[in-house]
Computed example of a mutant assay.
Amino acid sequence: MSVRDDSGGSGRAKAASRAPASFGAFARKPVERNAVHAAAGPASGIESVQALPDGAVEVGAIVDAYGLKGWVKVAPHAGANRGGDALTSAKSWWIVKGREIKAAPVVAAKTHSDSIVAQLSGVGDRDQALALRGWQVHVRRSDFPSLEADEFYWVDLIGLEVVNEAGVALGAVADLIDNGAHSVLRIEYPSQGKDGQPVTGERLIPFVGVYVKTVDQAAKRIVVDWEADY
């Protein structure tokens, strides 16, 4: 996660430094595909909490048990090979189902095919792991792996104002889409329907260097080479 990255994707977009790299190509930090990331220090087990921590981002969902020793299988919204290492790098997850929220220390986690598998503290057998199916997984934004200067997490682009080089406002980033070749900005803007009633318009702008000129996260603005009537 198209890859899901609304309030919570951890997909990455990477700006091109030279041709033929794509401005919006996903990038994943070099990491051994089957490397196990173990948490440091003691873990106290899964515990109920009142609220998610500040900066929590939904990054995936527990979909199954993995093996017989209590490991869980997670489908990351960004894909295991496209930002899923946010799950393997975090020492704690927060899992949510309905109104229930639990803090889940991570004992170990690794990439497995197109999924993430992990051992959570206090989950010791397959039945306990199966009981966690359907829980959404959140991690703190501060736990995401660091990026290079020309890389961007989708979650950090959502909400940014988009203007063209003439300064014309085109809307704000509502979502991103992965079309397989590159990311696409989905931009929403206020418009008017044929009946004169207000509606929400949509623009799709490929997140590639020919169109996207600058991304200024501090100013919360993206400048693009794109006309308002496209």
Rank of each mutant, 00 (worst) to 15 (best):
W135D: 07
Q136H: 11
E151W: 03
L170Y: 01
G180F: 00
Y211T: 02
S146E: 12
Q197A: 10
K110F: 06
D150I: 10
P145G: 09
K91I: 14
P53I: 09
V49W: 04
V212D: 04
K220P: 07
F207P: 03
A118P: 02
Y189L: 07
A38W: 12
L87P: 06
V184W: 07
V139S: 06
E58D: 10
G60F: 00
D85H: 09
P76Y: 03
I158R: 03
G11L: 08
N179S: 04
E151M: 07
E202T: 12
S89M: 10
Y66N: 07
R126S: 12
Y153K: 05
P190A: 14
I101A: 06
A131K: 01
S89W: 13
E148G: 14
N34G: 14
D6Q: 13
G11K: 00
D225Q: 14
R12M: 15
A90W: 01
W94V: 09
D125I: 12
E47M: 11
A131F: 11
V137H: 02
R186P: 05
V224T: 09
A80I: 02
L176F: 01
V96Q: 08
I205W: 00
T88N: 12
K91A: 15
V224W: 05
Q136N: 11
A25H: 10
V117F: 03
V162T: 01
L68C: 13
L204M: 05
Q217F: 01
V63K: 04
R33D: 15
E227Y: 06
A174D: 03
E151V: 09
H37P: 15
V168T: 14
S17L: 13
K213N: 10
R12A: 07
V208N: 05
Q192S: 15
G83C: 05
E161R: 03
F152L: 05
Q50S: 12
Q128S: 06
L160D: 00
N179E: 05
F152Y: 03
G124R: 15
K110L: 10
A172G: 05
L176Y: 00
R186S: 09
G124K: 15
A172Y: 06
G196A: 12
A118C: 08
L120F: 13
S115F: 11
G84I: 03
Q136P: 09
R133W: 00
S7F: 12
P206W: 00
N81C: 15
S121G: 06
A25W: 00
S22T: 13
L147A: 10
P30S: 14
I205F: 02
G79C: 02
K213A: 07
P53S: 15
K213E: 10
L87I: 14
V31C: 05
G70L: 02
A90H: 02
G122Y: 05
L176C: 05
